[in-house]
Write a protein that binds this DNA or RNA. Structure first.
Lengths: 188, 188
DNA sequence: CGATGTAAATTCACTCATCGGTATACAAAG
DNA sequence: CTTTGTATACCGATGAGTGAATTTACATCG
């Protein structure tokens, strides 16, 4: 029953990602993850020293995926308005999913809010910074001035959308954010 | 050792509020709450049927406090700019506290993201709606047109600030939000 | 005033379940 | 003969919630 170690590693990350995303970190047990990955708990612990280590690895993995997705979204650059429109449209689609339970990174940070030294928090911080960087570059490429400041504002709106959709169960907040972002770009 | 029931009730809510706020819901045990409230666990269960019930009650209590605070903040209305400035200044001060661990309501919803029927979520929803209502009224009183839409935008920025400060540990996001809000009010 | 009933809490042991993590021994593949 | 994983049982801790008998303080009534 020998699968390659790397393959099993990935299966575990996939399983953990899916479970963490839906139920949060604290509410998922190592037994569940092992079962979903199709291995025994013992084998799971041969790949990851602890639940915390697994969580950090999962967030890192998920960051890679998310950033790759963002960059694929890199179409021939047009206007800032179009960029903002498709950015928030994509966010809206994501957030509209019935099982949406908040952004994985945001969720991780919130769940571990009092544990400032937790490795997962550093990863979340790095991830959000990368998204902000990407936004700033895209906005600059679309001819927006003060792109860094604008990117920061779009980040605020993005996080706001994730939280408010979660609270109210209404994906319409993405549209509100989009319109606000457009006006912000225009009014600098 | 007879204290009035109502008094004990309040002590429990205070204790639970403090602990939930710092450590989240899942990471706090009923034993801890009882200890902090200065009563036994048995007595605690004479006041609240379950941890979930206690959480819902705590959020309700905390909503009352927060809304009362908001309304006290009701100074002689001046301009929209001044309103926005002091609103975000207050948010910034709150968020700047070293022990800041996210808004209680946001945090509750995130922790219970997959439990859609949980009573605490309804309370959080109602609270955020009340804050939005308050904002819309204040903005309207300050002469802002389309106050409802503007209030929604300020909500997005507010939630964004809470999450991003938590992630990055940098209270500067409140200033960013304030400047964005000002431009949004001007550019409708 | 003093007896007494009763609400409010105490004490403390106890159940039942979950969960992170480990130990040992063994099987299949390359 | 090592790497990868299985099977299975286990440990120690924690945590929600309960049970039963007991005590404290107050209020009311005789």
């Amino acid at each position: 029953m020998r699968r390659s170690a790397a393959q099993t590693h990935l299966r575990i990350l996939d399983a953990a990602y899916g479970l963490f995303w839906r139920q949060g970190f604290l509410r998922v047990s190592m037994d569940e993850i092992a079962e979903r990955a199709g291995i025994t708990k013992r084998a799971l612990y041969q790949h990851f020293r602890s639940k915390d280590a697994l969580m950090a690895a999962t967030l890192g993995y998920s960051s890679e995926l998310a950033l790759k997705r963002l960059r694929q979204f890199h179409r021939p650059v047009t206007t800032a308005d179009e960029l903002v429109e498709s950015y928030f449209a994509q966010l809206g689609d994501w957030v509209k999913k019935p099982k949406f339970s908040g952004g994985g990174f945001t969720r991780a940070v919130v769940e571990l809010a009092d544990l400032r030294g937790h490795p997962a928090r550093a990863i979340a911080r790095k991830h959000k910074a990368a998204v902000e960087r990407w936004l700033a570059d895209e906005l600059a490429a679309a001819g927006v001035s003060s792109a860094e400041s604008r990117a920061r504002e779009v980040m605020l709106l993005t996080e706001g959308v994730m939280v408010l959709v979660l609270i109210h169960g209404d994906a319409g907040w993405a549209k509100v954010a989009e319109r606000a972002a457009r006006r912000l770009l225009r009014s600098h």
